[in-house]
Simulated scan of single mutants.
Amino acid sequence: MTIRIVPATLACAGGLLAATAAFGQQSQALKEIPADKAKLTGSMTVDYNSRSVRSTSGTDLYEISDLAVADLMVLRGSVQRTPGKSLVYSVKFDVINPSNPSQVAREVAILRGDLQIDNSGRYIPDAGRLRIDVVKGNQTSSGYGGSIQGRNVTRWWEVGEQFRKAQKEATKIYSRVVDGKVVSIQVKNPDPLRFERTQLASGPFSFLPETRVSGNLDYDYELGNWLTDANAISFSYTVADRSFTDRVSGSIRYVEEEGSFTDKAGKKKPYTGYYEYNLRWNEQAVNNDQSFFDAGAAQAQSDAFFSSADQSKPGLYGRVYYNDTEDFCKRAKGDDGKDTCVGPTRSDVTWDLKAEKLTYAQLANWVKLEMLILGPLTDE
């Protein structure tokens, strides 16, 4: 049930946010999300106008619908992306009263501003004043900062060329501990998203802290996977004068196949591929000296590395489905000399992820980061 923000119910949206104070910053931010609520679900449509012969704008449009972050908040809105130049955000937050989940305050906060991209492919959020503004009740504003060094490829149709280069260049070994054993895979010339003093804004609740992010999320051109290296991705934040650092490691594996799934509303939907999430929070780190790639057991090591059979450890698991279409696509010559689509012109995206033993702060931090790297994550 939605509670209207009127004097008869809540004095203002700020009253709903203030209600969380009774829980205390530490208890709510660090509280483990109940298993039946620990989900990340929702949908998004992406119109890649930069790839369509019907469009002259060159601006891709991302429309986010009901992206529900556990029993914490729901995101709705749009992102306009001009490839290689900027992303312009207008994403609104509905927030849920943790002391009374039946109370929902609509459009209490908004993620807005520009995520600008410089000539070297670096994403610079503070150059465009990207921020989360609480616009109802006790109004506050918290900005994003630092930078993200983007992948070398910013246009979908350059992937083939980059893959050919990767086959001839350096390799990198990725390792993790599976069932007490170190398993490793080898990736040819991965392309990193590098987080450089990246700052995630606090909010929209007062107990969700400002967070610093460092590390890499590497892209594998051969298989279309995202991977963390031995350093993982680190999230550092402070709650009630206590400092915390979470290490997020693992993979987001791409599977190209056709099928169907049932969404949270019970509706059957088609897909042309999906990303399978197998991200772990604070799992056992692998010493660099333990990393060793055995070419003779490459397939077995790969199967073990990407296996998501064990979902008992703190992490984020599940699938993000894509249904891609290429109607009215621009064309370029492929490796065979024939004209081929430069990429999908539209993607229908559906999140179906579960958070295992994560806190509210941990899941909120990941969602904020994923919103920042929305462009690169959806390129393929």
Rank of each mutant, 00 (worst) to 15 (best):
A35P: 00
V79I: 15
Y237N: 03
P314W: 14
T211G: 04
G84S: 10
L30E: 13
S234H: 15
F293S: 00
S55R: 08
G14E: 03
L67K: 10
D94G: 09
P314I: 08
L363Q: 05
A332E: 00
P83S: 15
D66E: 14
S52M: 08
A298L: 01
N287A: 15
E258I: 07
K188N: 12
S236D: 04
D327Y: 11
L377D: 02
L67Y: 10
A201R: 07
K165R: 13
L227A: 08
W226F: 15
V108I: 12
L227E: 01
R129T: 05
N323C: 02
S86I: 07
T82V: 15
L200E: 05
I5Q: 11
G146C: 00
R54T: 12
D71Y: 03
N138K: 13
S214N: 12
G121R: 13
A232D: 12
G113Y: 12
L40W: 09
L115W: 01
S347A: 13
T140H: 11
M73R: 08
L358H: 01
K181P: 00
D229G: 12
T211E: 02
T41L: 14
E380G: 10
R176V: 03
L208C: 06
G121P: 05
E210R: 15
D218A: 14
V182P: 00
F207A: 04
S249A: 05
S214V: 08
V95H: 08
P204R: 05
E169Q: 13
R247S: 13
P34K: 15
L200G: 06
E257Q: 14
G318F: 02
K338Y: 12
V134M: 06
G334C: 09
S347M: 13
V248G: 09
A70W: 03
P125V: 13
F305S: 01
R151S: 04
A68W: 01
A300N: 04
A265P: 00
Q167H: 05
T245L: 03
Y360S: 00
K85Y: 11
Q299W: 02
S234A: 15
S57G: 00
A127N: 09
M44F: 05
D336W: 08
S307L: 10
F261I: 06
W226P: 02
L369H: 00
Q26T: 06
K37F: 14
E276R: 14
L30D: 07
G315V: 03
N138D: 13
V135R: 14
S142K: 13
E276W: 05
E257S: 13
G315A: 01
E222M: 13
